Simulated scan of single mutants.
Amino acid sequence: MKRLIPLAAFLLFPLLAHAETVNCRVVGVHDGDTLTCLTSQKKQLKVRLAEIDTPESKQPYGTRAQQALSGMVFGKDVRLEVQDTDRYGRKVARVYQDKTDVNAEQVKSGSAWVYRQYLKDKSLLALEADAKAAKRGLWALPESERMPPWEWRKADRDKRQDKREASATYTPPAKSKEEGSEFNCSTLKRCNAMSSCAEAKYQLQQCGNTKIDGNRDGIPCEALCKQ
């Protein structure tokens, strides 16, 4: 039995080492699931609310979700139970304002979906089902306007990628010199002022410069075009 106690403590240590609680004051609310807070050491932290996902600002109910979060936390002291740090450097956390579980409240009020890909607390699913049944918040919107934000972001990325690929794929064909793209009719030239047969043909055919086809055989500047 004595050998089991140190082993149990050793197995528990990694869990304790990774647990992080942070107290801070909210100084900014960016959308329905992202905020900035300031610690007592004057360190700013960008925080992503864990396990939930709210409509993007351009989606229906995006502004309302931001307002719901702001009403609960802006200018107030909160406690972060940090779960992770995401690829953008944000703390991913459950947020508590006094006794209020802010993440759960966003789901309960119909301001957020449960983010199933990162779900740990399955009790959030019951809150979402209850909000949906009661048509609270975003669940009062027509079904066509209730696209989950992770699907909306993917569709937006795909759309932008298609535009980039379309613009990169099409390259207008370069005009050859024979097409006369570098010539113009601003001046009717003599043969000795032209650099090529192509230019002479352009002057005759496009500009009507018949003086360079003295024998009217359709071949201008024969010294250039019969070389």
Rank of each mutant, 00 (worst) to 15 (best):
Q83F: 11
S70W: 07
M1R: 11
K159C: 08
Q44E: 15
V26C: 05
W150H: 12
M72G: 02
V92H: 06
A93H: 01
M1L: 12
L188D: 08
C185V: 06
V73C: 03
S144M: 10
G75E: 12
Q66N: 11
C225K: 08
L45Y: 05
H30R: 13
Q206S: 15
K132P: 05
T210Q: 13
L49I: 13
R136F: 00
C37L: 10
A68T: 04
P14C: 07
V27K: 11
G218R: 11
A50T: 05
K132C: 03
G180H: 04
L188H: 13
D158S: 13
Q97A: 14
S109F: 02
D33A: 08
S181Y: 15
G75Y: 03
A8N: 06
I219Y: 07
S196N: 07
Q205L: 12
Q161T: 15
Y202T: 00
Q97S: 11
D213N: 11
V107R: 00
H30V: 10
V78M: 05
E222V: 11
K91Q: 15
Q206P: 03
C221S: 06
L80K: 01
A200K: 00
E151I: 13
V102S: 02
T63S: 10
K58A: 09
I212E: 00
Q161N: 14
V92D: 07
Y96Q: 08
S144Y: 09
N23I: 13
T187H: 10
I52W: 01
A17S: 14
M1T: 11
D101Y: 01
L124A: 02
A193C: 02
I52L: 07
N215T: 13
L45P: 03
K189H: 07
D217G: 10
K175Q: 15
D156N: 15
A133C: 02
T187I: 13
R153D: 02
L15P: 00
F13E: 10
V22Q: 06
A112T: 05
D121L: 04
A155I: 08
G28H: 05
L35R: 00
L127S: 01
D101R: 04
A223T: 15
S70Q: 14
C37M: 08
D101T: 10
D162P: 02
L12N: 05
T169R: 15
M1G: 07
P148N: 11
L38G: 03
L141C: 13
A126L: 13
L15W: 05
D158G: 10
P60V: 12
K189E: 04
A134Y: 01
T63E: 06
Q41F: 13
R94Y: 14
G75D: 11
L127W: 00
L125P: 04
V102P: 02
D31W: 09
R25Y: 02
M194D: 03
A8L: 15
G71M: 09
G32L: 01
G28M: 06
A166T: 12
R94C: 03
Q203C: 07
K91F: 09
K2E: 12
M147D: 10
R160I: 09
A50Y: 05
K154H: 14
Y170C: 09
L138D: 01
R87M: 09
N103W: 06
V82I: 11
V47I: 12
L15V: 08
S123C: 08
V27I: 15
E20V: 09
R94S: 09
